[in-house]
Design a protein around this nucleic acid. Structure first.
Lengths: 123, 123
DNA sequence: CAATCACTAAAGCAATTGCTTTTCTAATGG
DNA sequence: CCATTAGAAAAGCAATTGCTTTAGTGATTG
């Protein structure tokens, strides 16, 4: 029961969604879609200490939502659109699947009762 | 510092992404896009106790990703597409924004150096 | 009506999270 | 060269998470 825990989080979607669950991290992502930024620039608008921002950044990098490279003493961060795209794709699939089923159901009901009556057993 | 913690998670996106960060909960969502199901049906394929599944369901309902109603002794769950859509929309916006900026940059580079040379400082 | 079934409530617990403070290293600017 | 700047590493801590077990409450069935 602890082995399973340690070997967990193999699925990239776990990491991506987990990373995006935090508003500070989403703010960082939103900032980076406007273009690259240093860690200091990312930290400035966030009401927390510098190390805290670094840790958020580590989470985002671990989820492959952000890449970064250090030149001189400044680390420049940019978004990595691939992980963003995979999360988006999963949601897209789920909604598409739901709508497909919904449409099938609607078609079935229309066929069953072809005149305009959308009422079901009320209360 | 603990008040802020308690009043946290006001943003629906926090709840949605947090809920989707767990593979069991995503499995539940995937199952429900195929159509409604009882708690027992949802629990069957998941290698965990019944109460654990109920707790996952509570998280999903809290995030408005799932709705449910009890009739007799069985609770029937269905997905709530609206929260799914809002998460999808956020990701969509971010990718769109990123692509917009990317295209602007590309156009700038093409204008700057109009002949077919896509090389940058290598190594 | 008694046993079972589907679900609920609650307590407990190890692991993880989201910070903090402190300390350190290395690049840069005057 | 010395002070500042940008980032890194680590330890500590309260709160949260993802389970578990145990002990219920009502519907439903034989």
């Amino acid at each position: 029961m602890l082995l399973k825990h340690m070997l967990n989080q193999l699925d990239p979607l776990d990491l991506a969604f987990q990373a995006l669950a935090d508003p500070s991290r989403r703010a960082i992502v939103e900032r980076l879609t406007q273009g690259p930024a240093s860690v200091s620039e990312l930290a400035r608008p966030l009401a927390m200490t510098f190390p805290a921002v670094m840790q958020h950044l580590a989470v985002l990098e671990g989820a492959h939502l952000v890449r970064s490279q250090k030149v001189g003493r400044v680390r420049t961060c940019r978004i990595d659109a691939s992980a963003l795209g995979r999360a988006e794709a999963w949601l897209n699939t789920q909604r598409a699947e739901w709508e497909r089923r919904f449409d099938r159901l609607e078609a079935y009901l229309t066929e069953l009762k072809p005149h305009g009556d959308d009422d079901d057993s009320r209360k």
